[in-house]
Design a protein around this nucleic acid. Structure first.
Length: 488
RNA sequence: GGGCCAUUAGCUCAGUUGGCAGAGCACCUGACUUUUAAUCAGGGUGUCCCAGGUUCGAGCCCUGGAUGGCUCACCA
């Protein structure tokens, strides 16, 4: 906002800045020893009635009555009314009070009382200007609605829209609860590199950056998976990483180029154990933070009580798309089915790819209540262990809620020879133009060759989960500073 | 990237058939010492997103562009 649109409102505030200085009050003062907070005074009125308190916060409203006036001060805990009287403040201080603008941050010291109408109020004995606001705040009643401005100038959104502030407090609490859950169970939080020489762990196009001294291009990570598994090779048995990953793809209400993922790995477990962990952790967070086993998202109530229903992908496709792949065995027959369903497919599409496509087209939209979908085709699961009894599928599940994938997990592929073959197939796809296919990660295969213990792994899209918990329709509502195209 | 919609005062929004640019809040002046969307009297503060075009005349119609929202595609 460097384009100084010096309009009358801003100009007037600059004048007041000078007036405060002329009156000997520093408009950008020092730290204020506030001993109380707004919510505390409101809650403990009985104890504080008639007592001296001090608070600091932002002036949000002002109601003048000549030789007295009311105002509301907003601090981190909420708003409280203050009362200024000429008789209490004296002529000079009262003139200063009258000079205050909505938006200014002030420190107030005074005594607590209740007005005739019953509102807990602080009668000001002394106040100090702590920070003069030079720009006017949005309107008090409608707040700031323009979503563009809300995202670009989130600080303003947070000042005037209290429910927005709540969302991010909840976000913090949910993430904290996850950490607590895992830490209590002796998982170790680790940090792995965000800049990779080879990307992997997900189907996605990466961001590319450059290291000057090494003179090499680096990729911002698209997942934490391959490094975390290296740590299982190294001997850690229970680890997790919670952090940002970056995918160079479209932006939508469900996608932001950078987002937060949680990945958890545990030796000597399989995907059934990861299912238990997923449903138990999410249920427990809901109980702990919202005091309920169910949440309501966009009008639909969802029961999080474990165990969640489980369907294999084949069962789900049969149930919702009415296609029974137990009798469709070859790739040719599968392609024929896909054509009959008017699905756009590649000439070389395999049975597994078609099953996955039908699942995405016909099944996902039905998965409103929490559910685990098990056993994904091997073609779309290059890092998951092959099913012993059905080698075209893997021990992989995804958890769905509100028709949205919120977790992805598998019994990890630990066979280095199989892994190398899968990478080779992915590399072929990549060479054929599929920019989202996985890259060959030689070092990861080498790590597996030293022996990785059998393990289950789990990934959760934290932002999507927080959308559900906070009933937010857009991922931007749970990101403090969502990615925006720059102005001009 | 495609489609649809939006963009007017600091904020929230009206704006008729193409004919002087509007309201509420905020702000400014005055009154008011327990108000609370304070009230009362007065004041309109503007690059109508940008650039062209049509027209005697454009906030409005046309073309192109910018940004955002929704949606489809892609993904998580």
């Amino acid at each position: 906002m460097s384009d100084e649109t010096i309009n009358e409102l801003i100009l007037r505030r600059h004048e007041k800045l000078k007036e405060f200085r002329d009156k000997g009050m520093d408009p950008y003062g020092e730290k204020y020893p506030a001993a109380h907070q707004a919510a505390e005074i409101l809650n403990d009125f009985e104890a504080l009635d008639g007592k001296e308190v001090s608070i600091s916060g932002r002036l949000m409203t002002k109601r003048g009555h000549g030789k007295a006036g009311f105002a509301n001060i907003q601090d981190d805990t909420g708003q409280i009314q203050v009362y200024a009287r000429l008789d209490d403040l004296g002529k000079d201080n009262y003139e200063c009070y009258q000079l205050l603008d909505i938006g200014d941050i002030i420190g107030v010291q005074g005594s607590v009382f209740k007005t005739r109408k019953g509102e807990v109020t602080v009668a000001i004995k002394d106040f100090r200007l702590l920070s003069k606001a030079l720009r006017p705040l949005p309107e008090k009643w409608h707040g700031l609605k323009d979503v563009d401005l809300r995202y670009r100038q989130r600080y303003m959104d947070l000042i005037v829209n209290p429910e927005v502030k709540k969302v991010f407090i909840l976000r913090s609490k949910i993430i904290q609860a996850m950490r607590d859950y895992l830490n209590e169970r002796d998982f170790l939080e680790v940090e792995t590199p965000m800049m990779h020489t080879v990307t992997g762990g997900a189907d996605a196009r990466p961001f590319i950056t450059h290291h000057n001294t090494l003179d090499i291009d680096l990729y911002l990570r698209i997942a934490t998976e391959l490094h975390l598994k290296r740590l299982l090779v190294g001997g850690y048995n229970k680890i997790y990483e919670l952090g940002k990953v970056f995918r160079n793809e479209g932006i939508s209400t469900r996608h932001n180029p950078e987002f937060t993922s949680l990945e958890v790995y545990q030796a000597n477990t399989d995907y059934f154990d990861m299912m238990s962990l997923t449903e138990e952790m999410i249920h427990k967070i809901s109980r702990q933070i919202f005091g309920s086993s169910s949440i309501t998202y966009q009008g639909e109530e969802m029961d999080l009580t474990p165990p969640w229903p489980r369907l294999t992908m084949l069962e789900a496709v049969k149930k919702y798309a009415d296609v029974d792949f137990s009798t469709i065995i070859t790739d040719e027959d599968s392609r024929e089915v896909a054509q009959k369903m008017n699905l756009e497919i590649d000439k070389k599409a395999t049975r597994g790819e078609i099953i996955n496509l039908i699942f995405e087209e016909y099944v996902e939209k039905h998965l409103g209540q929490p559910i685990f979908i098990l056993d994904y085709p091997i073609e779309v699961s290059p890092l998951a262990k092959r099913k012993k009894e059905d080698p075209g599928f893997t021990y992989r599940f995804e958890a769905f809620m509100a028709c949205s994938e919120i977790a992805n997990a598998f019994t990890e592929l630990i066979d280095p020879v199989d892994q190398k073959e899968r990478f080779t197939k992915q590399a072929e796809k990549r060479a054929a133009g599929d920019e989202e296919a996985h890259m060959m990660d030689e070092d990861f295969v080498t790590a597996l060759e030293y022996g990785m213990p059998p393990a289950g792994g789990l990934g959760i899209g934290i932002d999507r989960l927080i959308m559900l918990f906070t009933d937010s329709p857009s991922i931007r509502d749970v990101l403090l500073f969502p990615t925006m195209r720059p102005r001009d």
